[in-house]
Design a protein around this nucleic acid. Structure first.
Length: 920
RNA sequence: GCUCGGAUGGUGGAAUAGGUAGACACGCGGGACUUAAAAUCCCGUGGGCAGCGAUGUCCGUACGGGUUCGAUUCCCGUUCCGAGUACCA
């Protein structure tokens, strides 16, 4: 009986499901381990062979940990709200709930075929009201909180109100949109609307007029991480900057904790680096410059206070609020024209020509607080309204952008750091002695910076300050398919619903497009009001809302009273291993950390960081095949001969190519236009060209896992995906290689059964050689799995099998532990063999084999003997010799004498167990 | 531009507290079994040179240097590829 993977996999998959073998519960007698996959967005295209890579790896680790005695939580669900389903709904009129449901079913079907050990009783869907209840709840909590910098944590907003009542803003050090200052009596005198406006300035979920990324094509605003190169991530539509009233989350309050928290995490260095760059911490100072003829001060942010004597002009962002009055009558028209031009340019246009210098003089002058010099104030779009103060002091000698601006407008360039050549470019390096700089002349730049920080503070013209590049997260979308905000409006003031009104369910609608007035679809719903008749917020939450705390919900998915119960939270705590793509580095992985820290501050969860260890699986790319059509004919020429013709490269379906040899009949049948194709062959074959590209339909290189499972089985697919290469690396899929793994599993099966399906496993005693093979493999596989080096563990199994085949080993003593060892990788096969070996219980109740080092001891070691590093011969010596004895044995060898040629060796280097090197 | 990562046979990839480079697998070539095919098994497979042959020998881990008895591994420089970010003051 051959290895019948179809029957085996079906049998065990249905048994696992029927017996709920993978259900987990809180069990304080066993250590917990939480393995999580980034849950998928169920798109209409279904899974291709690249998608399950991470799921397979996490499943192997889950099963491994379970066999090691851990109580492993390994859940799965769906990130089901989002733009694609809604875009599809607009195009086809089908309700997103319907298409989403259909896609989920398809995903589930595909995943089930791969034999994953998820506890499906814990499945969640972000679009399920029972789930988004808690998304809305968290939003309400954020609405009802502010961030206290002194305590470094979020606090209820009532505390802030109390402090305002007591002493106004005096002594309040809280995260806010714009600094505020008022007394207790002024607070007391404010009406409700005014107070609410003040509080919006502090709330962690707040509504404010901000510069947002507006995407006209999608009809919605987008968060920074949803915009790439000035285009929307979804769909690639142009995005423009627009000032709009939007809900935001004050993630910037957590910038420092998000940054410093990275140090404790076992994440890859590159991922941490991406987050560090995204947070973009920079140390500097705010400095106030005087304005000639005015009492107002112009505030700038600089990281180079040492260059302040080199300031020759100031630049404001065109949107800066001072511009309107800084523009003198003479320049007013030109300034307004420039502002209008800047506003018209899309983000993409601006990014496209960062080389071009533009700007406009306002007619006003600022005053350098250190030497009283009067310096012209310009506006230019190279200064961003959103960063720092939206104004800079320009030091053309030591900043390349300021330099370009100065050259263009013919402004003076004063060097203040010695050592650069300013004829062609600025000297930006932070090295050299200060010159032309009054009291800091002669200091090195590195000394001058702290001196100037101190001096700025001493003179009271500014303060040290840390700036972050991180922006608050825009949280509303003018869309239908998302979580409704639990917010209603009364007299234009936003009020939260009470907790017992949650979940606020998304109403059913028929028309998903935006309204004529450009309002969100919910604006069309006539009864989208509170019971009292107040209008509800019509925008919905963005995609990242539902995915920000889903790992917590898995711990206790059916709890109706809390996001997660205390017992469950304190047992499962946080995710021990998180597996997913690196593309979420600046989105989901930032928001989730923020969201979790917030819940931690308020005491709802017991861990500050949600994901202890994180592994990013690489992308599986497609391997495309090409045929070469001779231009203007229907003739196709094989790869090796194509240079003799003028040809056109055409993608050909990889499913009709095997080992780069084209199936000619299948090609003719592939498309009508190729029916009459003729071929110029080499050696009777048509050889295709190939290239590694993204796996996509248009390249005809998509391989469907269903097809692979059908042909080779899930266990083969699982092992082959791991065998392909290191988990974290991107690598191309190549179906051809899969035979090797499949052959391995068939040979493995034949260790247990003869042709007629009779079990041939014996109870004979194993030989030392067999035991050595087994324990060597146990050791290697254990180490590799711990290091997520699954590709080399698969190799280890293959080597083990080769050795056991050589030894014709079919002994239970060897094979039984081996079955357990391979179980995480090929669970169906292992389960079947386990039961055939006479075990009634599932193999995942067994315990993982441990390596016993005593079987690994070598009796003889073969030493390569080298002379001056070059290996000349090998010498076999008994194991366990001391370096001294090895040296003696080698020196007395006649072969050594031959290579010494009468000379005495200078030195002999012995690396026990490895090599002996004789230095001449 | 800045930051990070990478480069090893025809292919995917092994091997780094510095110690026989190319494990394992694909592909390819040869052979066995078979009427034949599939399946299975065995042998060979980085390149050059010498030899009928066992074998010997030189060159080889992107390129150029350095440290070392010895470098794929460590250091300096260069080229190319990938990722992140982009007027961040």
């Amino acid at each position: 009986m051959e290895y019948d993977f179809k029957a085996i996999e079906q049998k065990w998959q249905s048994r696992w499901a029927a017996d709920k073998v993978y259900r987990v519960e809180v069990d304080k007698s066993r250590p917990k381990f939480y393995v999580l996959d980034m849950f998928p967005y169920p798109s209409g295209a279904g899974l291709h062979v690249g998608h399950p890579l991470g799921y397979i790896a996490s499943d192997i680790y889950t099963r491994y940990k379970r066999l090691k005695g851990f109580n492993v939580l390994h859940p799965m669900g769906y990130d089901a709200f989002g733009l694609p389903a809604e875009q599809y709904a607009i195009q086809t009129g089908q309700h997103p709930a319907v298409t989403t449901e259909r896609n989920i079913e398809r995903y589930r079907e595909q995943m089930d075929k791969l034999g994953f050990s998820y506890d499906w009783d814990r499945e969640i869907r972000t679009c399920d009201p029972d789930y988004y209840h808690w998304t809305q709840w968290a939003f309400l909590k954020m609405f009802d909180s502010f961030y206290d910098y002194d305590l470094q944590k979020a606090r209820p907003i009532a505390e802030l109100v109390h402090r305002f009542e007591q002493s106004g803003t005096e002594g309040v050090n809280a995260a806010c949109t714009a600094p505020m200052s008022f007394t207790a009596s002024e607070w007391g005198a404010m009406d409700e609307r005014a107070r609410e406006e003040v509080l919006q300035n502090y709330r962690l979920a707040y509504r404010a007029d901000t510069l947002v990324n507006w995407c006209p094509a999608l009809g919605t605003v987008l968060a920074n991480d949803e915009v790439k190169d000035g285009l929307s991530e979804r769909g690639g539509h142009p995005v423009e900057q627009k000032r709009m009233k939007q809900w935001s989350l004050r993630i910037t309050a957590y910038a420092e904790r998000l940054l410093s928290g990275l140090e404790k995490l076992q994440w890859s260095e590159s991922l941490k680096e991406i987050q560090r760059n995204w947070i973009g911490r920079s140390e500097g100072a705010q400095v106030f410059f005087g304005i000639k003829g005015s009492d107002e001060k112009l505030e700038v942010f600089t990281t180079r206070p040492d260059t302040i004597f080199g300031v020759t002009f100031m630049v404001l962002a065109p949107e800066h609020e001072y511009v309107s009055w800084l523009a003198t009558p003479e320049y007013r028209q030109a300034v307004e024209y420039y502002q209008a031009q800047a506003k018209k340019r899309s983000e993409r246009e601006r990014m496209a020509d960062t080389k071009r210098v533009s700007g406009q003089f306002t007619g006003s002058y600022a005053v350098n607080p250190f030497n009283g010099t009067e310096i012209p104030i310009y506006i230019s779009d190279y200064v961003l309204a959103g960063y720092g103060t939206g104004a800079i002091m320009a030091v053309p000698a030591h900043d390349s952008r300021d330099y370009a601006f100065a050259k263009h407008f013919d402004l003076p360039i004063i060097p203040v750091v010695d050592g650069g050549d300013l004829s062609e470019s600025s000297y930006d390096a932070k090295a050299g002695k200060m010159i032309n700089s009054d009291f800091i002349n002669g200091l090195d730049v590195k000394e001058a910076i702290p001196v100037m920080f101190a001096e700025v503070e001493k003179r009271g013209i500014g303060k040290r300050r840390i700036n972050y590049r991180l922006r608050d997260a825009i949280f509303s979308r003018q869309r239908y398919w998302g979580e409704p905000f639990p917010i209603y409006y009364k007299d234009g003031i936003a009020y939260p619903l009470s907790e017992d009104q949650l979940p606020l369910k998304l109403p059913p609608i028929e028309d998903f497009g935006p309204t004529e007035q450009g309002e969100p679809p919910l604006a069309r719903v006539a009864d989208w009001k509170t019971p009292e008749g107040y209008p509800l917020e019509t925008s919905t939450m963005p995609g990242f809302a539902g995915s920000s705390a889903y790992y917590l919900r898995y711990m206790d998915p059916h709890n109706h009273n809390a996001l997660v119960g205390k017992t469950e939270d304190e047992y499962w705590r946080n995710v021990d291993l998180y597996v997913g793509g690196i593309e979420h580095a600046t989105g989901h992985l930032m928001y989730s950390r923020f969201w979790n820290m917030f819940l931690y501050d308020l005491g709802y969860v017991c861990e500050e960081e949600p994901f202890k260890k994180l592994v990013n699986q690489g992308m599986i790319q497609g391997r495309s095949n090409f045929v070469y059509r001779v231009v203007g004919t229907n003739q196709f020429v094989s790869l090796g001969l194509k240079d003799q013709y003028q040809t056109q490269e055409i993608h050909v379906d990889v499913n009709i190519v095997k080992n780069d040899i084209l199936d000619l009949d299948a090609f003719r049948a592939w498309r009508p236009e190729f029916e009459t194709a003729e071929f110029i062959l080499e050696d009777g074959k048509y050889i295709c060209g190939w290239a590694v590209e993204k796996m996509s339909k248009s390249m005809f290189n998509v391989v469907n896992p269903d097809y692979i499972v059908e042909q080779y089985g899930a266990d083969t697919l699982r092992m082959y995906e791991m065998f392909l290469g290191p988990l974290e690396q991107s690598k191309p899929w190549d179906t051809n290689g899969i035979d090797g793994v499949h052959k391995f599993l068939r040979r493995f099966w034949r260790l247990f059964f003869d042709r007629d399906g009779r079990l041939i496993v014996t109870d004979d005693k194993a030989t030392p050689a067999e035991l050595k093979t087994l324990h060597k493999t146990i050791k290697k596989v254990n180490e590799d799995v711990e290091n997520f080096s699954f590709n080399t563990s698969v190799s280890a199994f293959m080597i083990c099998l080769n050795e056991l085949s050589d030894q014709k080993c079919n002994k239970r003593e060897i094979l039984e532990p081996l079955v357990v060892l391979i179980a995480p990788f090929a669970p169906h096969l292992a389960e079947e063999l386990w039961s055939q070996l006479g075990h009634p219980e599932t193999i995942f109740n067994a315990s993982y084999p441990q390596c016993d080092e005593k079987y690994l001891v070598e009796s003889e070691v073969e030493y390569p003997v080298s002379f001056n590093g070059k290996v000349r011969f090998k010498k076999s010596l008994p194991a366990g010799l001391s370096p001294r004895e090895i040296e003696e044995a080698v020196l007395s060898d006649p072969m050594t004498g031959k290579y010494l040629e009468g000379k005495t060796p200078k030195k002999v280097i012995v690396v026990p167990g490895k090599i002996v090197n004789v230095v001449l």
